[in-house]
Simulated assay, not measured.
Amino acid sequence: MTKGTILYIGGFELPDNNAAAHRVFGVAKALRVIGYEVVLIGVSKGPLETIEQGRREIQGFDTWSLPYPQSTKDWIEHVSSIDALSTIGGHYERVTTVILYNYPAMALSRAMLYCRRRRIKCLCDCTEWYGMPRGLSLSAVAKAVDTVVRMRILQKRTDGVICISSYLQRYYESQTATVLVPPLVDLDEEKWRSGAVQSESAGKTFVYSGSPGRDKDRLDVVVESLATLDESLSYTFKVLGVTQAEYLGYYPEHREVLIRLGQRVIFLGRVPHSESLTHVRFADFTVFIRQANRANNAGFPTKFVESTACGTPVITTETSDLGRYVHSGENGFLVCSDADELGGLLADIIKGEAVLDHGIDSRVFDYRSHVEGIRAFLATLDLSGGMNV
């Protein structure tokens, strides 16, 4: 006998095609331990002719995937419709709660009203707060307006917000119920234990795994720091998630730098998630640099969570809540976003002059470690209501 059904809806690509999907599975597993049946309703870029075609069981959860919007008409419907809630929700009895993951403002407003009329709690899972997009195109302006309305008005009026960072929790806690939940993993999954044999690369191995863009992760600072190292030092820097051509599209001025670094820097492009974890697991350090801005402080880097779960220490900047988890010189290193400073640290690590004092607590982001916090949050809400959607 469950405590009721929770519908978890958003733009996550099941089963594991984006960071959002990994997050919702972690939170959903914690909710299942507490006693709820959790239904995941995400999106798929594959062909789907009917809603039923997108239904399947994944890791013991009933999941649904809706077609990813392609045309302008699709996008208008995506940001305004709550058909997923009303149609799919009708398959389940006693829906007590709906969790909306970074939901568009217009659809969020309609979902809030829909839930209120049915005595269903409406929660938001908030994992980002991006700034103004570049350009003045119609889509850019629409996205900016959507972000302002969602973040500054609507989410404050929901029954509660699941916050990925303390930055977001501080912003919402005076307006509604909140709980701090970083990205979560399930360490019992095989992907955290299996993998190929350890790399035979000479010297230290550093790795970056992600989608850097031009502004999110300053991969250019890492490359510039490597350019400061003495050529006698032995190391390899593996870059997963972006090809060399894509990197040079962002930083064409680094063409000669990469030629000089040669096989010390290896771009592997996009690889399956399990393969990326193998590279992270057998690296000496994960390295990524971020600027301290609202977008980076409001979010939380999944790559940090995955590296920690793999037992691989991280070299990074102090953004978001990373200072809570990285004690510089003990279980990782916190640096400034300065190529010379980072280069000096990397040189000391390669030469064996910078050594960590402690190991990595790989279970800190396991979902089981966060069950009680989520349970306490739900206890502040009255989930005794709910009805058939």
Rank of each mutant, 00 (worst) to 15 (best):
V181W: 03
V242Q: 00
T63P: 10
E37S: 04
L248N: 01
D83K: 15
D186P: 05
Y36T: 02
P301T: 04
R116W: 04
V364S: 11
R368F: 09
G54W: 01
A347G: 10
D284H: 09
A20K: 14
H279T: 04
F267R: 00
L123V: 11
T63C: 12
G359I: 07
P183C: 03
S209W: 02
T380Q: 12
L229C: 01
D186R: 03
G385R: 15
S211C: 06
I58M: 08
E353L: 10
G11K: 15
D366W: 02
P182G: 02
G343A: 05
S166F: 02
D74P: 06
E231V: 13
Y250L: 00
A283V: 05
S307H: 06
L85A: 07
S201F: 09
H78P: 06
A339S: 15
V355R: 15
P15M: 03
S232H: 15
F365D: 08
S137C: 03
T127W: 06
V364A: 11
T302H: 10
A202V: 13
V185K: 06
P47I: 15
T317S: 04
S209I: 00
R157A: 14
V179M: 04
L187V: 06
H91N: 12
A283S: 14
D338I: 00
L184D: 06
T243G: 05
Y167T: 08
Q291F: 03
A227V: 02
I34P: 06
R264D: 01
D217I: 02
L268V: 01
E49H: 05
Y8G: 12
T87C: 11
L168P: 00
G329C: 09
